[in-house]
Design a protein around this nucleic acid. Structure first.
Lengths: 231, 231
DNA sequence: GTTCTTTATATCGTATCCAATATGGCGGTT
DNA sequence: AACCGCCATATTGGATACGATATAAAGAAC
């Protein structure tokens, strides 16, 4: 079953064609929520979604159940689904939890970093820079995630990494909402460089400390935004 | 907001009536899996399940999606669902992750313990004892879980606690499989008493340490069972 | 024995129908 | 004017029937 002259895309260039409708709906809907295009608190109407995606309600409902499990939407029987809305306290809770999980995973992952991991991190840093030059903030976010998850994935702790990924997804809509300003790019780049160097020298504790600082800046911004929004 | 004379059941005595078929299927199926009555690796046929529970396939499929998110079953498009089967390495990974999360949550939760928490823990210990007398091992497991989650719930860290609960669920089928023998009851009781005392004196670090020892015993048993099964 | 073809089974999805429930407005009462 | 019960409507929850697709197993040809 080799890729013949038919239009079958190669394994590398294949723009992931969802094999089932539920997966397509899931991917698209998750992207919409994470990007903040469906704002937190919005009610989700199954029929409307089904019509929007050109599918019936069944695959939509299954995708919604997954998103509920991921914490992106909330569900109440006979009320339906709403895009999850996090209070500031909850956002901070998520960041604390990230502290715990990412520190653990990084301690396991850093010693396992090999040359390919290093190369991938470098590539992500460069791609992040060029995306920033194009003012492609979405691309920046994507590359930023790739950069950080190289270390996490190296740990091989699939469950923990999956949890971390969900926590990132949870907070992403708020980054899109609040971080309209391109947050201090030089600071981020400098910190990434430091993290990268610590990874190259396989210094797990250094990486853990740098990641903590890195996150604390995000939390600081978050707090400031929240107070500004309240006042 | 006191409970009036209306027929509204109080928060304590409300007998949870599954409001929807999907919830009923979910609860029942999860119980079957966690108890090990559907052994790990088994294929799950939607039609059979629907018929078994007397519902159509729609609620079954939604319940399956939830169980997939919880890690109880695996899913492959057009292939269906199977009861998740964990290798020993994965089980150990789960226990390590529990170490990390439970330590974190306990450190937050123990200082917040109040008299009602203490009472609940005592009640659970007694109920666990009487269940053991009746040789009701399921009841023992239920009370054991209640005992431990008093501390976790006290933390107020809903997301972290939910993750911990899922990890418990994940490993439960294997407890049911392997722990046919009523594992050293005196040891468990003694450790629970120690944990209880540490909670009463609000000594978080002591609780964390005791929980670690507590879990390590389970891991030891698990290893032994795995080696016995292989040999 | 290997490979190709056929067949069977189960999943995936659609369409349509009906029941149960929550929401919002209406009118009546106090 | 504030409160309460009642009713119309929209949405969710679910059932059923049917068709399409993909995987896997059985059988046929070489």
């Amino acid at each position: 079953m080799t890729a013949s002259a038919s239009g079958v895309p190669s394994a590398e260039t294949r723009f992931l064609r969802p094999q089932t409708a539920q997966q397509a709906v899931l991917a698209e809907l998750r992207a919409l929520i994470v990007r903040g295009e469906i704002p937190p608190g919005s009610a989700i109407v199954q029929d409307a979604l089904a019509e929007r995606f050109g599918v019936s309600r069944v695959p939509v409902r299954e995708a919604l159940k997954i998103l509920e499990g991921e914490g992106h939407i909330t569900y109440a029987p006979h009320h339906g689904y709403k895009v999850a809305k996090l209070e500031v306290a909850e956002l901070l809770e998520v960041y604390d939890l990230r502290d715990v999980l990412e520190s653990y995973v990084a301690r396991v992952g850093v010693p396992k970093i090999d040359d390919r991991h290093v190369a991938k991190m470098q590539a992500a840093m460069q791609a992040m820079d060029s995306a920033a030059d194009r003012e492609d903030m979405i691309g920046v976010g994507v590359q930023n995630r790739i950069f950080h998850f190289v270390v996490f994935d190296a740990s091989g702790l699939t469950r923990a990494v999956r949890m971390i990924r969900q926590l990132w997804d949870t907070t992403d809509p708020y980054r899109s909402l609040y971080f309209v300003k391109p947050l201090n790019r030089e600071t981020v780049n400098a910190e990434h460089s430091q993290i990268f160097e610590a990874c190259v020298s396989r210094d797990a504790e250094a990486v853990v400390g740098l990641l903590e600082i890195h996150r604390s800046h995000a939390v600081q911004d978050l707090r400031a935004m929240a107070e500004a929004a309240q006042g």
